Each structure stands twice: as C-alpha cells, then as structure tokens.
Simulated assay, not measured.
Amino acid sequence: MRGIARVYWRLLGAGFRRQSTYRLAAVGGVVANATFGLLKVAVLVATVHAAGGELAGYDVGRMSTYIWLSQAMLGSLNLNGRTDIAERIKDGRVAVDFLRPLDVQAAEITTEVGRSLFALIPRGIPMLVIGVFAGMAPPGSLAAYPLGAGSLLLGIVISVAAAYLVGVAGFWLVETRGLQVFYMVIAGFLAGLFVPIGLFPRWLLVLAEATPFPSMMMYPIDVLAGRVDLAGSLGLLAVQVAWLVAVAGLGQVLTRAGRRRLEVQGG
C-alpha cells in the first residue's frame, strides 16, 4: 500500500513539474486572466451599481471578490474537457496504460491534478494580488481559509475527474472534439465562470445545482469568500465529496466498459 501511494505521489509531482516547463504560457495566462477580470469588473460592478448597490446578496466588495477568485482559479480548473486520455484512446496508446500495474483513471487524474496545482502559483497568486488592490472583501471568519483550501482542492479534482469522462467517451466516439466543445460551453456557464449562479433565474439555478459544475468553481468561491457560515461551508464540502464519488465511480464504470470494447490495430 505504501509503495502504491509513493507511485501516485510521484505522478502528482511529475504533473506539477511538467506544467512548470510552460513558463511563457503561464505568463500569457496571467495577461489573459487579468484582461478578462477587468472586463468582468466593468460589467458586473456596473450592474451592481445600477441595481442600487446590491444584487442578489452581492455588493461591490463581494462581487469583486467573486471576480478575482474565479479568475485565480480558472487556470487550475479543467472546464474545457481536453485530456490526454482522449488522444491515447484515439491512437491506441491506452492499451499500454492498461498493461501497467496502476489504475488508469487514478493515474490520469493524479497527474492532471499535479498540473493544476502548479497553475495556482503563476496564475492564481497574481490574480489575488490584483483583487486585493481592486477591493476584494475579506471573509469574516478565519475558518474560511482552511475550509476554502479544502473546497478548492475538491473543486480541482472534480473538474479533472469530470473532464476524464469526456476523454473516455472516445472508446465509443473515437473523435471527442465535438463533445469537448459542448462540455466547454455548459461547464463554464453552470460552474459560475461568467456570473455567480446566484444571479440565475430559479429554474436555471436548480438545473445548475443538479450538476457537478458548481462544485468545481462556485462552491469553493462561496467558501473562500465567506458567503456561507461554518455549517453552510461544511454542507458545500459534503456536496463536493458526494459529486466526486459519483463522477469518479462513473469514470470507473466507463473505463472498464471501454477496456472490454477497445480494439487496437497495427503494429
């Protein structure tokens, strides 16, 4: 058991180091995140002012907190559905993955989480610095920091595990780019990337909460921003854990079914 844990720890570190080699891409990501963050400030803060200073529980400070936390998290969340497993299924390399003494899904998710954690450093921290100068409202309780960190980690893992489902659909679809585009459209919107889901009409809010997408971004933001109390934070964490179990379980089912279906030709 200890040996297996050591292997997964090394996979996590390998993903972290792999992402650290793309330094220019990280710089470009910071510029893009900051630009879109400022655009969101211009639109959403103006909307709050137009609503009389408060909109669905968001004043200017809370809206600024939402904007810059979402921008800080963006580089670490897989909301586009692109995964390495999709390409390995398409060209047949996944057959080698099945020969290794590791769970294919767990190995893929662990590596991707390592890459996501690195992105918090060059892309997440600068967004928080900008947010502090832009008027982010600090949480009212110190408990929001450790609970928010746990919620953020769960959000990252859920986003990677859900994107894995898009990739393993390649066992049946072969070409998954169309599915990836569809996933990217709905994931970002329902996760709360563009506006807080609290601004959704009631029917759309219920629809969003019936999916794992708010657990990727909106719930961690609510916990980190202190928009919910201790009981509410623990409740959101419990929802995230439930979605992680459900998504990971479905990934196991699809992986095993795909392994039985897999055919590799050539040599």
Score class of each variant (00 low, 15 high):
A161P: 09
A162S: 12
A162M: 10
Y164H: 09
L165I: 03
L165R: 03
V166H: 07
V166G: 06
V166D: 13
V166N: 07
G167F: 04
G167L: 02
G167R: 00
G170F: 12
G170W: 13
G170R: 04
F171T: 07
W172M: 11
W172A: 12
L173D: 10
V174N: 05
V174Q: 14
E175V: 10
T176M: 01
T176F: 06
R177L: 08
G178C: 11
L179N: 09
L179S: 10
Y183F: 14
Y183W: 08
M184D: 11
V185Y: 05
I186V: 12
I186R: 01
A187T: 07
G188K: 02
G188D: 06
F189Y: 04
F189K: 05
L190F: 09
L190N: 07
A191K: 02
G192K: 00
G192V: 04
G192E: 00
L193E: 01
L193S: 13
L193Q: 01
L193K: 01
F194V: 14
F194I: 10
V195S: 06
P196V: 15
I197W: 00
G198F: 15
G198P: 05
L199W: 03
L199A: 03
L199H: 00
F200Y: 09
P201A: 08
R202L: 06
R202Q: 13
R202G: 08
R202D: 02
W203K: 15
L205R: 14
L205M: 14
L207E: 13
L207Q: 11
L207M: 11
L207P: 12
A208L: 11
A208W: 06
E209F: 05
E209Q: 12
A210E: 15
A210S: 15
T211N: 12
P212H: 00
P212F: 01
P212L: 01
F213Q: 00
F213N: 05
F213V: 09
M216S: 03
M217I: 13
V223Y: 05
V223H: 02
L224D: 01
R227Q: 08
R227N: 14
